[in-house]
Design a protein around this nucleic acid. Structure first.
Lengths: 202, 202
DNA sequence: AATAGCTAGGTGGTCTGACCAATTAGGAAG
DNA sequence: CTTCCTAATTGGTCAGACCACCTAGCTATT
């Protein structure tokens, strides 16, 4: 009949509801550890255990001397955490490349609505800058993902992009980027699928 | 020149390398908190903060009186916890649902080659079983992802699927599954895009 | 009066010691 | 040999003590 639930888990919940009830937003400050301990009838160490756990997930940020703050939800720290975990498991290089390509394709589609003349020029600028292919590709699609306005997809893509650097296979050529720009200029949504399907899978 | 790095973060790394060096497998026992504290020249509270964080990630399990044990990785805890924080932003809900749908769509495409009569029957069986919509959807697409033969995409999708459970919006209907089966029967790859595009985004 | 500098209080970071609760192993009693 | 109990070990929790750091506000100097 004793409390099977650990204190730090209970504190975890309390902090959640506290955030919800007080409608705290990213950037707002939480009560100090000592205050929380007193309010929740718990020891400071238990409160800290809960806070450290939340911190590791990237949901809060602590600044010595100042306090504990809610973080921007945008960080999506979890995505990187989970993604790197998933990607470490044995898998084929082809899976990563294929998955990455799928995300890029869909981002291209999502971005087409926001793609005006100005943005297209931005893409062209990136292509003309003197960099290696990897940097160019990353910069190019970073713009596209921003316009696609889906931060989650972008984060997943970034992790894949990083992993793909360790793979020595590059299958995009200048023609690909060129064709893509034409598609954007003419707003030919229906041609995107083919563009990506015609990429060779080495 | 002081140690900017927090002790518990350092302990975290040490424990990870310890697991790696000693090749500990799920089920194996870690040194006791007091032992770790002594070995790593840290206080027991710092060790505990690290352990609690790892525990929240679902990597270890602690049993009072026995010890701390490695366990097979599960994301459930994590997802539930993160959901309550992240999903407060309406935008992120839509991002997750949209991202999930993209993965499902591409999995459907990838699976079409391996989709024979037998597999189609398997899908039908799932649909006819008495379960709630969530379970049905998960089982249905689990089959598809297996046939798509991309472990990476499947893992990412599973996480998103878990997240979506915490969102009270369901936008697939029986007609969707039915149409999908017809597409598979007739191997109409070209109709998949439209099928998904016609799903309403509530 | 304006500014530079210092001080006190609050905050997170860490350690130590104490005690409780659960489990286990080993010895004592039958 | 079996049963039971005790002691040791381990995680769970708390309290208190410092330290490092930041900030606001006061003080003293210009």
């Amino acid at each position: 009949m004793s409390t099977k639930v650990k204190v730090y888990e209970e504190v975890l919940k309390q902090i959640q509801t506290l955030i919800y009830n007080k409608k705290l937003s990213p950037g707002d400050r939480l009560p100090s550890e000592r205050e929380l301990a007193e309010q929740l009838n718990a020891g400071r160490s238990s409160v800290r255990e809960a806070l450290r756990a939340i911190e590791l997930l990237g949901l809060i940020e602590t600044r010595r001397g100042e306090g504990t703050f809610l973080r921007t939800y945008r960080t999506y720290h979890l995505v990187e955490l989970l993604a790197s975990f998933i990607l470490q498991e044995p898998k084929s290089k082809q899976e990563i490349l294929l998955s990455k390509r799928i995300l890029e394709k869909e981002a291209v589609k999502l971005a087409i609505q926001s793609m005006d003349q100005k943005n297209i020029e931005g893409l062209q600028t990136v292509l003309h800058q003197e960099q290696n292919q990897q940097q160019k590709h990353y910069a190019f699609f970073s713009i596209i993902f921003s316009l696609a306005d889906n931060y989650l997809l972008q984060k997943i893509w970034e992790v894949m992009e990083q992993f793909s650097h360790t793979i020595n296979e590059y299958d995009y050529n200048d023609e690909f980027y060129h064709k893509l720009l034409i598609i954007y200029k003419n707003q030919q949504l229906e041609n995107i699928e083919d563009l990506f399907n015609n990429l060779s899978l080495n």
